[in-house]
């Protein structure tokens, strides 16, 4: 039943996540000139940031009740209802994290599939399998921002937690380019030189780095949630 609660809290977020990248893809100004893979590179960065934004937005998987749409009264007090249920805080968070992660993957996949269908010129010589690899890479590399958001949600409230997630992503983005980290080791590499559409291979080192971050962030989030007082 925690799945039902999570679904009711996130379904509008999911809809936004699906709609905004697709609407953007339909704007002629954005897509103008995206006639080759290289020309589409700016667009790939935009899509990558859509992914990060969704990760931050869908990853607010704390103990606190979330607002599905606009702010609603009674969110704060209903947290005590969640805490009074005979389930561990770990389960409350795990179910919500799993659901949000699935929704996040769906949003990222939809954005890249939309890109593939609507901008055939930008495909270049890449295959459908390259697209699949790109989706897997994008989800895996952005997942660390999803879990960063999960961690932030254990102590930050709703409007601040997505901002925090996006801010963190920008810091990582700038930091990685300042330090000139190789694209295969950069969690944003898939939006540039390490894109499977160009390299026809998955950048495993970047994914490994992302997964290590995911695990650490999730464990810390669970510990905080278990110890926290509400």
């Amino acid at each position: 039943m925690l799945w039902m609660k999570g679904w009711l809290e996130t379904r509008w977020r999911l809809l936004y996540g699906l709609a905004i990248p697709l609407i953007t893809l339909l704007l002629p100004r954005v897509t103008a000139g995206a006639d080759s893979v290289k020309d589409a590179s700016t667009f790939m960065v935009v899509l990558a940031f859509f992914g990060v934004f969704n990760a931050a937005y869908l990853g607010g998987a704390g103990i606190r009740t979330q607002s599905p749409f606009a702010a609603m009264k009674g969110l704060h007090g209903s947290t005590y209802y969640t805490l009074s249920l005979p389930v561990s805080r770990m389960r409350v968070i795990s179910v919500r994290v799993a659901l949000g992660l699935l929704e996040f993957a769906a949003v990222v996949a939809a954005a890249y599939i939309g890109f593939w269908l609507l901008l055939p010129a930008a495909r270049g010589n890449s295959t459908l399998f390259d697209l699949f690899e790109l989706i897997v890479t994008a989800v895996a590399c952005s997942a660390c921002f999803y879990f960063a958001s999960v961690l932030l949600a254990t102590f930050l409230d709703d409007p601040w937690q997505p901002f925090g997630g996006v801010f963190l992503a920008i810091v990582v983005w700038l930091g990685a380019s300042r330090l000139s980290i190789g694209p295969r080791f950069n969690v944003f590499g898939f939006a540039g030189a390490a894109s499977p559409l160009i390299t026809h291979t998955i950048p495993w080192p970047a994914i490994a780095i992302s997964f290590i971050c995911c695990a650490v962030l999730f464990v810390v989030a669970l510990r905080i949630a278990d110890r926290r007082e509400y």
């Binding site: 609603m72 009674g74 704060h76 007090g77 209903s78």
Partner: peptide, 9 residues
């Protein structure tokens, strides 16, 4: 609970 608040949605 003291607040009498449940999931508003």
């Amino acid at each position: 609970s003291e607040e009498k608040e449940l999931y508003p949605y």
